[in-house]
Simulated scan of single mutants.
Amino acid sequence: MLLAIDVGNTNITLGLFDGKKLVKNWRAQTLKTDSVQQLWKKIRTRSQNVNGVVIASVVPSLDENLERLCQKFFKQKPLWVNHKTAKMPLRVDKPKEVGADRLCNAIAAWEKYKQPAIVVDFGTATTFDVVTAKGEYGGGPITPGIAIASAALTSTTSKLPAVKIAKPKHVVGRNTVECIQSGLYYGYIGLIDHLLSLIQKEEGCKMKVIATGGLASLIAQESKWIESVEPHLTLEGLYYIHCGNNF
């Protein structure tokens, strides 16, 4: 079994692969102060017969303890995703700065479709990962995630309440909650679709658009560009990267 670990700012997402098949997946809250033992409690109950570990992390404070965990409990060093292990041409100025999760998304999109693509990942931040017609990682915009925008609105105003991020009944809200939901939901759809249009114009071709991350399904309902929602795309990218380093 291959254990794939995606360490994000909000959640740690884990998957177990039996060959190419993702047989289990689960998530736990990211706590940047977790010890080796605390991390193990989040992993151990579902991690059996593991003979390989691959990790993409955007939380450096956890990297050392994850390395120690793998050596202690799995008796092996994990494969860390970075600009070198990804084995994908990078059309960017500073390859070392590209997030490991973004590399996973791009590689999964290329391996699955072999065509120009954009992956929109609705995480703590919303990222757009461009894959060129040559199979290169092309960079892409980063915006605050919808939850961050919602929290900022609540924390910096005196009378606006926290609201559930949801599709409202009306664009022109009939009450404060609905007005905020409309601004967040339709405002982000406008942001997403406009950026997708600009990216394709700049790249000079029609591109396959894939959404992943927590709010992908919600936004995809109204987006004119998003073609598919693939919730396990980042884990699949981890699988492909592991394969690329163990052929």
Rank of each mutant, 00 (worst) to 15 (best):
93 D>W: 06
247 F>R: 14
183 G>F: 01
183 G>A: 08
45 T>D: 14
78 P>E: 11
217 S>C: 04
208 K>V: 12
9 N>D: 13
136 E>Q: 13
168 P>N: 08
20 K>H: 10
79 L>W: 04
10 T>R: 01
162 A>K: 15
102 R>E: 01
134 K>H: 11
148 I>Y: 04
208 K>Y: 15
167 K>S: 09
24 K>M: 11
209 V>L: 07
91 R>E: 15
24 K>E: 14
197 S>N: 14
105 N>K: 06
215 L>K: 06
219 I>G: 04
41 K>T: 13
3 L>N: 06
102 R>N: 01
153 L>P: 02
152 A>K: 04
96 K>Y: 15
102 R>C: 00
97 E>G: 01
38 Q>N: 08
69 L>N: 05
96 K>G: 06
195 L>F: 06
34 D>I: 01
188 Y>F: 12
155 S>M: 10
201 K>I: 09
141 P>V: 05
26 W>M: 07
223 S>Q: 11
106 A>N: 05
47 S>L: 03
144 P>G: 07
103 L>V: 08
228 S>M: 15
119 V>D: 01
52 G>T: 12
74 F>S: 05
93 D>G: 10
48 Q>H: 14
32 K>A: 09
25 N>S: 13
44 R>A: 12
213 G>E: 07
195 L>V: 08
148 I>T: 08
160 L>V: 09
188 Y>N: 10
34 D>A: 13
24 K>G: 04
206 K>I: 15
169 K>G: 11
64 E>R: 05
214 G>A: 05
193 D>F: 00
95 P>H: 09
59 V>E: 11
134 K>P: 00
93 D>H: 10
34 D>N: 12
125 A>W: 02
136 E>Y: 12
242 H>G: 13
87 K>I: 13
44 R>P: 03
150 S>T: 08
164 K>L: 15
78 P>N: 09
184 L>S: 05
115 Q>C: 12
55 I>M: 00
131 V>R: 03
245 N>H: 10
1 M>Y: 02
193 D>I: 08
88 M>R: 01
155 S>C: 05
197 S>W: 14
216 A>Q: 10
138 G>H: 02
73 F>P: 00
141 P>T: 08
78 P>I: 02
81 V>E: 00
58 V>H: 04
102 R>L: 01
78 P>C: 11
90 L>W: 11
138 G>S: 09
12 I>M: 10
16 L>H: 01
128 F>A: 05
88 M>T: 01
29 Q>F: 04
241 I>N: 02
218 L>I: 07
185 Y>G: 07
224 K>F: 10
168 P>C: 11
92 V>N: 15
107 I>Q: 04
41 K>A: 14
125 A>V: 06
46 R>Q: 14
22 L>P: 15
232 H>G: 05
146 I>R: 00
80 W>L: 00
140 G>Q: 02
48 Q>D: 12
156 T>Y: 10
104 C>Q: 07
80 W>R: 00
13 T>I: 11
76 Q>Y: 03
5 I>V: 12
93 D>I: 07
180 I>K: 07
199 I>P: 02
67 E>M: 08
191 L>M: 15
53 V>Q: 04
197 S>L: 14
106 A>D: 04
236 E>C: 06
161 P>Q: 13
126 T>P: 02
177 V>S: 07
216 A>K: 05
79 L>V: 07
129 D>A: 03
235 L>Y: 03
17 F>H: 09
221 Q>M: 13
204 G>S: 05
